[in-house]
Design a protein around this nucleic acid. Structure first.
Lengths: 339, 339
DNA sequence: TTGTACGCGTTATCAA
DNA sequence: TTGATAACGCGTACAA
């Protein structure tokens, strides 16, 4: 049972395909009578326009492609939520692809999206991506592309992100203002920019407040098991340092690991040690004690990135000259029981 | 800068479009020489085939559509992960749409997917969906559709799900075997099938083990704030019943609420009360104490559903007669410190 | 007001 | 071994 086409309707009514097409799109040069008849017949046959044909004809697919490292992630699933909702509002569909933190996959997915002629692409780079030929190739083809969260600083395109350094700076400054003096940092892997920036924010906050930076207070959580990293390094930290009074972590899950260790070893939070996380996972307001955290506007980021992208798509269509934007979304601090 | 087409390559080499097409697809009736030349030129011009045109020609889009209630959800994001990965493996792209638990949206999204001529559809129904005209319309058009998790029992199509009743039965039976006697149930809303089935499993386990069912031990968590429901009804339960020794919850987040209440009120888990959750959220192995939970194979469900769907797509193409399958995935129990 | 003709980029058929 | 032609379904400039 093949889908109904304009031809079927035309045939049924003994008129031309053109007239049917025009009638359905409400053109003014079709008589009311035929318009009505066409619409009625379309409904009767349960006609659904074939987007593929429209796409080919109009040279746009009303589809945007998204590449993220992984969808099973509090932050990214929220971003995707924002993307899908904004796209829907503007009549676009969303194809989601994962790079799984592999540059190789990222390249493949990018090619796939190109083949499918998506109207634009949203991408958050993999941790492996330090070279941008594949991205630049897209841009050179004049395909709208917006980077979010994990961006490439050297790439010339629109970007939307948070100021990780500043956010970390604020969190650590808050700790210092609260009177904490010996503040450890459980940082992420060495290469990702987010991880670096949060570390730099931590460091700067110390320095600006006259606290000497102590490298031995920085623990690197560089495998993918954040929770166990937190637990493991908490143990190590308490063995190595007697008087640490606060920890700032690169992400909340690391903080949960620390929390676990503290609970098990009767270390009181925040009395013995304060904990400040990053990303404000849902769980942070649920665990005992509730964990303070940096609020990243994930949903908002998805929405804004999509808005920006669709704007660029439209600019391209209307041949408006491109101007790339860099949007830095504000973060804020969720202060809870742990600090 | 328009994308390169076959025509461009043909023009460049002074041969026909047909030959270029054949050469690129490795047809045997093209000379080695021209094949080489064509491929070289394609690479040089950075040719990417236009899927839209291919789609129109071949009448398939190599795309599947997915409709879920919400993507920001531990279970569903895992399902989507499974879907995307399996789809990718088989050369399909995935368009994700959300119903936000609204029947109205579900209908709209279904129509959208139809317009875009996806090759097949995966759907997990909204909580509002008790009437299936929109689904049946799709099936009547012979568009492959597979339901997962939240299915409509009355719809005649392939389904993939878990046996909620059985899973709940096993969890509660485990509690009983462990010696717990007065077991409460924090159930979900009244209408969703999952919620009903889990409740029925709870009830049956009691009855099969000679424990009288006590309706006052069942609390209904029917707004969307599971965590606070858990907290709120934990308080209520402890006020109303002195000697409850275990709780089985419809989902882990409710259990976290109970946990919170217990921690705050110095109620020992599992000594004073055991807690058994459902869905095995990531956090359940992290909180203190770790919460026992029913393991739902979410990733697996996505993968299997996609496999099934693509098989149906292929059957349709090869005109193999359709046979609908109902796959029940096994669940298991993650036994932890809370029981 | 209606319809003819063409093109979007590709593939399949058939003839050369 | 190659290519002309038609077709997928639709939209639009133009002619009638």
């Amino acid at each position: 049972m093949k889908p109904i086409t304009l031809k079927d309707i035309a045939h049924e009514l003994n008129i031309s395909v053109t007239t049917v097409s025009k009638a359905l799109k409400g053109y003014s040069d079709v008589s009311r009578v035929t318009k009505k008849a066409v619409k009625k017949m379309a409904k009767k046959l349960n006609y659904t326009p074939n987007s593929v044909a429209v796409n080919l004809r109009t040279q746009e697919t009303k589809t945007i492609g998204v590449i993220i490292p992984a969808i099973v992630h509090h932050f990214f699933s929220n971003v995707i939520d924002g993307i899908i909702k904004e796209a829907k509002k503007q009549g676009y569909l969303v194809i989601t692809l994962q790079s799984n933190e592999k540059l190789e996959f990222e390249k493949k997915q990018l090619k796939l999206l190109q083949q499918h002629r998506v109207d634009g692409i949203l991408i958050s780079l993999s941790n492996e991506t330090y070279q941008f030929d594949h991205i630049n190739a897209i841009l050179q083809k004049n395909i709208p592309l917006v980077m979010f969260d994990k961006i490439g600083k050297l790439v010339n395109c629109s970007k939307i992100l948070i100021d990780d350094k500043q956010a970390a700076y604020e969190a650590v400054s808050y700790l210092i203002d609260k009177g904490y003096k010996k503040i450890a940092h459980f940082r992420g892997a060495l290469k990702p920019q987010n991880s670096i920036d949060r570390f730099l924010g931590y460091k700067k906050a110390l320095q600006d407040n006259g606290i000497e930076y102590d490298q031995s207070l920085v623990y690197i959580c560089d495998n993918n098991d954040d929770f166990n990293n937190g637990y493991k390094y908490a143990k190590k930290m308490f063995e190595q340092h007697k008087n640490v009074d606060a920890v700032f972590t690169v992400t909340d899950v690391v903080a949960y690991g620390i929390l676990k260790y503290c609970n098990e070893n009767n270390i009181k939070i925040p009395d013995d040690i304060a904990i400040f996380g990053f990303s404000n996972w849902f769980m942070s307001s649920i665990v005992t004690p509730k964990i303070s955290s940096v609020i990243q506007p994930s949903f908002e980021m998805g929405k804004k990135a999509t808005k920006l992208l669709i704007k660029e798509i439209k600019n391209k269509k209307s041949k408006t000259p491109v101007t790339f934007k860099k949007v830095v979304l504000p973060t804020s601090l969720a202060i809870r029981e742990s600090t």
